[in-house]
Design a protein around this nucleic acid. Sequence first.
DNA 1: TTGGTAACGCACTAGTTAGTTACTTTGCAT
DNA 2: ATGCAAAGTAACTAACTAGTGCGTTACCAA
Lengths: 210, 210
Amino acid sequence: MPETKKRKRDADATKARILDAAKKEFARLGLGGARVDEIAERAKTNKRMIYHYFGSKEFLFQTVVEQAYLDIRTAEQELALGHLPPREALETLVRFTWKYYLDNPEFITLVNSENLHQARHVKNSQKIQTASRQLVDMVGEILKRGVAEGVFRAGIDPVQLNITIAAIGYYYLTNRFTGSILFERDFMDPKSLEQRLEFNINTVLRLVEA
Amino acid sequence: MPETKKRKRDADATKARILDAAKKEFARLGLGGARVDEIAERAKTNKRMIYHYFGSKEFLFQTVVEQAYLDIRTAEQELALGHLPPREALETLVRFTWKYYLDNPEFITLVNSENLHQARHVKNSQKIQTASRQLVDMVGEILKRGVAEGVFRAGIDPVQLNITIAAIGYYYLTNRFTGSILFERDFMDPKSLEQRLEFNINTVLRLVEA
DNA sequence: TTGGTAACGCACTAGTTAGTTACTTTGCAT
DNA sequence: ATGCAAAGTAACTAACTAGTGCGTTACCAA
């Protein structure tokens, strides 16, 4: 197995370790709060390698954020919602989005950090735009089928629906710390999580119902 | 007018200028990104005064965040939604929340920053909890009246509804930079803003409808 | 008027941080 | 085997940053 043999020098493996460590650190502390030295240590390499492969902290961040978006868009496409009845398709998307945010907590924090910086790293990514267009198309198709079958009302903007599906999960999770204090309940308790998911499914289905 | 006479030394005025400058800087760059020197400059004072009045950057941030929460909770109470018919009351709350986020963009960024730091500054604020309880009660009362009048369905958790009302506006605005790129439309265009608000009102009313 | 206290400000420190320089080591093509 | 480009490392720097020491100035009570 010459491909998987452990090597003392392996550019690809080092790059991957740096990206993984960077994702965690940027998610934990944001672009401004993350420390390049800390990323190097977590990646079991040193700072020089980061500058060798990525040139700057900013470009490392840009790479991490772009990959994070491509990952979620890929996972969404793999759902193959086109084969499900409209209501089930939407419910599946709501459940998937929720679970994805829970399983990949870095995604939310990375997006927050990118928006704090006015999306300047993502601004020129053609890849992300293309992938997002596919998502909107997918939801648009579901809506169209739902209308044809008489289960959904007409005239719903798929972009608005996408935003809402993301919002009702994302907001709950990104603000879980202040939320738990303001509303005096543990937002991450399994029962609370399940209740929120059910509430969200209900919200979306009532929104599209004929 | 001895009260309003300009004084070269005015502790209250200086404190107020520091808080105002801090709110803007923390909102712009987060707790980590904001610079104490910059806050001092914006407040037309010097760093020493900030440490004199607030002791530390962290405590200054805590003061700013706490005040931001109290401000929005106060404004919500002033809506006096108890006097409106249930549907109008909810629509008014959705419109208010949306407008408040638009008029006070610092609020969203401050909350994001506080959550990045796991709400550790807000953790012990009794005042914020009390104010939030009033909001939940207010929405709870609206729901109760709606059910009694037969226009709302029973069994809706006022906390979940509150979260959703905040979420559908907050998410759109906090992620307006990446959103504008991903979805290839200007999220801050007046027409886009109006469309989103109408969509959100619809979402909430359909959610509670009997 | 004056003495004391609170408000104010300059200039510094001690510690960090992104990025770099100058160097050694590895492994592969020949 | 061996030469050399790529992979890797430690120690450095220049700039920056939160926080402070210490002296000055305005205001008010007496």
